[in-house]
């Protein structure tokens, strides 16, 4: 009986594994083993060049900076929102959650053009600032614009992941903590947040990975001036047609995401052994 159910579970894993194998692991392995237009040695050389080229290092630094900032802002904005939704009366929480993930249903291009309208030289923000006598603001084609766009794009992921952890908490835990004399901040720091850490970390990993690999938003809001790895990758493939260099960029991006995923997994495990 036990064996049967375990086998059934394994069978259920198969379709997902098959998709991952053919759509992810195989292309990655193939790219590394026999890159189009080159050989593994060329990719290795290109990777070395990417990691040492003084013109390209800022791109890597900017990618990390933008992604980390996006992740932190999403955490700071998303976690409290998820908390409020999870503690709202049942008839409200469903509607609020739907509202929070509504942006996911909009096309990224449409949403990003919205930001151009807001942030551009003749945009809403600039016009308002001029009306206040503060002069024009040019946020478009800056790192700030990229971060703003990415935060909006990925905030729902943070809210959803945090919510999944928070909604499983026994609300009596907070009552218990308050009854024992803990004020709201202590309740949050010592009970609510530590217990929801796994969900928040999943959210952080998703947002970080999404931010590193996002293309439309940084391309449209950062332009060619504020390149990050994903837009660099695109120009290597489509503009300079330099496939080995593109493979090198892809490799660095993948390693970056894997490192953060591993880090978050470790933190989560440490959280669960103390929990």
């Amino acid at each position: 009986m036990e064996l049967t159910s375990r086998n059934t579970v394994r069978l259920l894993l198969l379709p997902g594994l098959a998709v991952l194998l053919f759509a992810f692991l195989y292309p990655v392995a193939a790219t590394l083993a026999a890159p189009p237009d080159g050989d593994p040695a060329t990719v290795a050389r290109e990777t070395g060049a990417l990691l040492t080229d003084p013109n390209l290092l800022p791109v890597i630094a900017r990618t990390i900076r933008v992604s980390v900032l996006t992740t932190l802002i999403c955490l700071v904005l998303g976690f409290p929102t998820a908390y409020l939704i999870s503690r709202a009366p049942a008839r409200w929480s469903g509607k609020l959650l739907a509202l929070a993930i509504f942006p996911l249903m909009l096309n990224t291009v449409v949403r990003t053009y919205g930001w151009i309208v807001v942030l551009g030289g003749n945009g809403v923000l600039s016009t308002a600032s001029q009306a206040l006598g503060l002069g024009p603001v040019q946020l478009l084609y800056t790192e700030t614009a990229i971060v703003l766009g990415l935060v909006q794009l990925f905030l729902p992921l943070m809210i959803l992941s945090s919510y999944s952890s928070l909604s499983q908490q026994d609300p009596r835990l907070e009552d218990a903590a308050r009854g024992l004399g803990a004020g709201p901040s202590r309740v949050f720091r010592q009970v609510v947040f530590p217990l929801a850490l796994p969900g928040a970390l999943v959210g952080c990993t998703l947002v970080f990975a999404g931010a590193v690999t996002a293309f439309t938003t940084p391309q449209l809001l950062g332009g060619s001036r504020e390149r990050i790895l994903s837009t660099l990758l695109y120009s290597r493939v489509n503009v300079s047609l330099d496939w080995p260099a593109a493979s090198a960029v892809a490799l660095v991006m993948t390693v970056l995401v894997l490192v953060v995923a591993a880090l978050s997994g470790r933190l989560s495990k440490r959280g669960s052994t103390t929990s």
């Binding site: 835990l173 009552d175 009854g179 004399g181």
Partner: peptide
């Protein structure tokens, strides 16, 4: 007075122990 300033000891049906 909020609960945290009442000096009460409460025991819940669901125990409500801090699992971590």
């Amino acid at each position: 007075t909020p609960p945290e300033r009442r000096n009460i000891g409460m025991v819940f049906q669901s125990y409500a122990l801090f699992p971590h």
